[in-house]
Simulated scan of single mutants.
Amino acid sequence: MNLRLRTAIVSDPGLVRTNNEDAAHAGERLLVVADGVGGQPAGEVASEIVIRNLLPLDRTPIDGDPTTALTDALAAANRQIAEVGRTDPSRTGLGTTVTAVLLTGDRLSVLHVGDSRCYLARDPNFYQLTRDDTFVQELVDRGALTPEEAHRHPQRSIITQAVQGSELVPATVVVPVVAGDRLLLCSDGLSDVVDDDAIGEALAQHTEPQQCAEQMVKLAHQGGAPDNVTVIIADLHPA
């Protein structure tokens, strides 16, 4: 069955930062959240480069494997980010996370680098489709921290991989989906301050995507919103 996306997107600078280094896109079949790496120069430039390179996948037919199309577009963005860093010393070290979803028929191709996230809500269940590239996630994987402890850890924002112009190994997965599924893509400005229980409850309670996205940002504000917050809600419907 062919499916389509009904989407809403909200991007907010948060309550502490004056600029928004996040960039996002929610189209007919492509969803992307890119979060300029905190503390690095020109993070907003890197996130926009990633969006710009992935955007054509929303507008033209995909020849071949959708996952390959995503990884090729990201590789092109990575090369451009490297070039910006080489030619402009003030932007050396610029980088970004990326989480992207490409819908083809009834399958999602998911691409991920960093700590932005993709969740899938399928009543009554709620799954995280991505694994954070973070120091604390490595500790969780080794059994040194519980997920609850990781959520409160002071080093939870330290990422182990970003799109910064160097060698890159994005994670990819293909997920079958059905009508009625709901997707959430978000920057860590949401997931660092709002726990999964509250996220899952908001996904279940708010039927309209725009209302749901706005509620997610409201929850981040209630948690102090020390970082930029970007949220995409996408509901899957029959085409």
Rank of each mutant, 00 (worst) to 15 (best):
L70P: 02
G27Y: 04
L94R: 02
A179Y: 00
L168I: 08
E149C: 01
F126P: 03
Q205R: 15
R4W: 00
V32Y: 08
H112D: 11
D115Y: 09
D195S: 09
I51E: 10
R59Y: 04
I9W: 14
A69T: 01
G93N: 04
H151M: 11
I9P: 12
A202P: 08
V231R: 06
L145H: 13
G38C: 02
A220K: 01
A26M: 08
R131L: 15
V175S: 01
V177D: 03
A46Y: 12
G27C: 10
V84E: 14
A121M: 15
A24H: 05
P66W: 12
R142N: 12
R52Y: 02
D65H: 09
S90M: 14
V174W: 01
L168Y: 06
L168E: 03
D106P: 07
T99S: 15
V101W: 03
E201D: 14
H237S: 03
G224W: 13
G224M: 13
D65K: 08
T104A: 13
A34E: 09
A220R: 09
T130E: 06
E48G: 10
I199D: 11
S47Y: 11
A204Q: 06
P147L: 06
L129D: 07
R182M: 07
A179S: 14
N125D: 15
M1Y: 07
V193C: 12
V10T: 04
Q215I: 05
D195G: 14
D72W: 11
V178F: 00
G43R: 09
